[in-house]
Amino acid sequence: MAERTKQIKFQLNRETYSKETAAYKPKKNVLWNSLKAFLVGGFICMLGQLIANFYMMYFNFTERSAGNPTVATLIFIAVLLTGFGVYDVLGQFAGAGSAVPVTGFANSVAAAAIEHRSEGYVLGVAGNMFKLAGAVIVYGVVASFVVVLIKKLIVG
């Protein structure tokens, strides 16, 4: 009957329950997760740099013009990995490391397209492709507008 002498821990009401149970959830290892994100994200960026150098060295692109084919190549690789079911495994491991680079954007578009293929090409694939990526586009555009506005007002 040791249980009974223990002080009652659970009030079982809406105000306190979340706090009472917080300790039961396994903690996210923030340091380890950040390190994984840093390494994978950094590796993807390094890959991008290698691809850019490749285009500059063999196809006479300049540092400025190599950007477009490099991004296209990264997107192609990410879409391929999404189709083979690898990118979501990488995403669980790397978190923001694989979500933030352009490959993560490509993954969100490709994943939605694959997912909704069974509902047809128009309403399924096309209608849902930007379900997740749409938010990135909207807030990307809004944020860049705000940044440019600030720059104009301050720097002139």
Binding site: D88, V89, Q92, S98, A111
Partner: peptide, 17 residues
């Protein structure tokens, strides 16, 4: 996953719980 969360191949990270 499709009904309640994200597309299956989407690389989002889930918490350990």
């Amino acid at each position: 996953e499709r009904q309640f969360r994200y597309p299956t191949e989407y690389g989002g990270q889930k918490p350990p719980y």
